[in-house]
Design a protein around this nucleic acid. Structure first.
Lengths: 198, 198, 198, 198
DNA sequence: GATGAATGAGTTTTCATTCAT
DNA sequence: CATGAATGAAAACTCATTCAT
């Protein structure tokens, strides 16, 4: 990539800054992380940060963007698969768990910091979230219409129930805990599917 | 009575401060709410705030304390009831949803800000949370041993699944939405119980 | 004494406040001691302090007054004694050391805080100090004129030399050290008299 | 060069800040001098001060460091000279007076503010002071062993006696007074040596 | 491209003092 | 006599951002 000198740590400066910021934001929260701390931890100067990013907020938006893009791409993939709806929902439900755990820092930041987005950006992010939510809901509704899922609970609530557990992962999941990401994902997808049994 | 002077707004100063702080913390987040904003909104001076609360953190801890106390008391009540375990778990699961919605500001603050507690306070809060979690888990395990709940999923995960949906309420629940708190509670408890069917 | 209720600690409130303030001022300095700390340590309320003393400064002035009065009285006594001038100077020089050590908290405060007196009070205290200094100097000059003390050093400097050592006591003297107050006093008076040998 | 921008007053900012702070600390005392007053007097902003100094305390430590370094270097020089012990002690005793007067602001601050150092820094400063004291004492003891000084007074006390007069200089010495620094120094050294005559 | 000195508005907190009760 | 809630001004310090070099 052009214009990305390497400070001697094997990574372009912009990437190193973003990775460092992500780690620090997840550890101590966005507001509790100073620009000074980020540049010190990344081994660059303030000038360099402001060369690559317009503001501290920009760093946060990069994280948001990454999370949104990733989740949307994965869901697109699983929703469009050629398989029965139970299979597609289960795969999507499990996959969002795995990718959330694999990007736990990013998703922690995402869920914790959403509430201090500027109005315009907030609107945009909410729109993307809604699109994601609705695509997931469509899977549930498809199964309900087909009779393979119970219709006892509104599809919206079902989606929020599952996403709640995803949102919650950042609170309790530990890398060195007893369950591998895939195991957690299987269990949580299982719970969802069992709850939907007619 | 101590601490009960009325500044003309019909409420003791300390209570007014806490209510105002709770509202603002929920709206904009703890770090984004300045002491100045709190006292202005409450119509008192900074000195008054520091007369009643040792620090801004103290206000936060008051909120935590209230949430923890409330949830623990309710759970104690439902867990000890004289009823089949399915009933006790369902009631407890629905009740935590209702009380969370009824105290949505407090619980929003609680889940969002837990991560910037000071080490000592953090330890204490974690211990209380763990106790709560374990009492809930005990209900699930009791039902699993009795064979009325499926043992396919570890009880810990089941608890985190349900709590995820509680944690998540702050993100999507709107007072003016289509569902009353009790309706949401019934649906979510239903999903939990259905997921646990053997 | 009239109007001095006893809080149950065996001492009139005003005295207890002054004693507590003296101790705290000596320990942490006047500016670093808050009125709150004084009343807490004395076991009374702020209202009580402001009932007996007009301000925090008043407490300091009480200490100043005590020190000035004490030193002046003692010097008067020794200077007027019926004895050879060497004896009178030695006794006065030793006595100021003993009484300084016996009231080390007060004198620490006195020397450390003199520089933040209000202009009027400052003038008064300086005048009293000067009077004290001059009376001491008169003893030295008397001996110089009589030929029993060397005139090699101006009497003013001699007095400042000795007072320097008194001033300095607060910096190094420890109650649990190897020398009793009287021993220190004898040695320091000895040094003064030896320095003045013709 | 780093930190050497000139605000238009002919001196690097950091130096100007330190000089201003030293003057103000000496005039009104450390606690009575606000950071605001320092930056206003130095013609810079608070941010600039905190760019160069970590805290208000840091400014104080810079002063301490300068005083300690200066005094230690001078004493090293005089103590190691190739001359009889009487000469070495007299020179050292006179020199500390001259350099104290020449840096009267710094030494005023040093003696007045030592008592509110943070524990760690306090330890360090005490250690350096002790080293200085002991080196001075060693000179006295050497003379006592050699029989050129009286042993009537413990060497420790002799050192404190002389240092008392140095400490005291800040209280009475005026630049526009009748005695030049060197004259004061000669007189005080004289008094010390006369007091030590066998 | 990159630096780092400097800004200025903002932060939380402290504290001597007053006054209605 | 004594209380303690409340004040208001000032304190030290932080920090995202800018800009001359």
């Amino acid at each position: 990539m052009a214009g990305t000198k390497d400070g001697g740590s094997g990574k372009p400066v912009a990437q190193r800054l973003l990775a460092t910021a992500t780690r620090l934001f997840a550890e101590r929260g966005y507001d509790r992380t100073s620009v000074q701390e980020i540049v010190e931890a990344a081994g660059v100067t303030k000038g360099a940060l402001y060369h690559y990013f317009g503001s501290k907020d920009d760093l946060l938006h990069e994280v948001y963007g990454r999370v949104l893009r990733l989740q949307q791409e994965r869901l697109d993939h699983f929703a469009r698969a050629d398989a029965p709806v139970e299979r597609r929902l289960r795969d999507a439900a499990a996959d969002v768990v795995v990718t959330t755990i694999e990007n736990l820092d990013d998703t922690k930041i995402f869920f914790r910091s959403m509430h201090h987005l500027a109005p315009e950006k907030d609107k945009q992010v909410r729109a993307e979230r809604r699109r994601y939510h609705e695509q997931f809901r469509a899977l549930v509704e498809e199964g309900q219409r087909a009779g393979v899922f119970s219709s006892a609970t509104p599809a919206d609530l079902v989606v929020d129930y599952h996403f709640g557990s995803v949102h919650h992962l950042g609170t309790w999941y530990r890398e060195d805990g007893p369950l591998a990401p895939q195991e957690v994902a299987d269990h949580l997808a299982d719970l969802l599917l069992r709850a939907l049994r007619p």
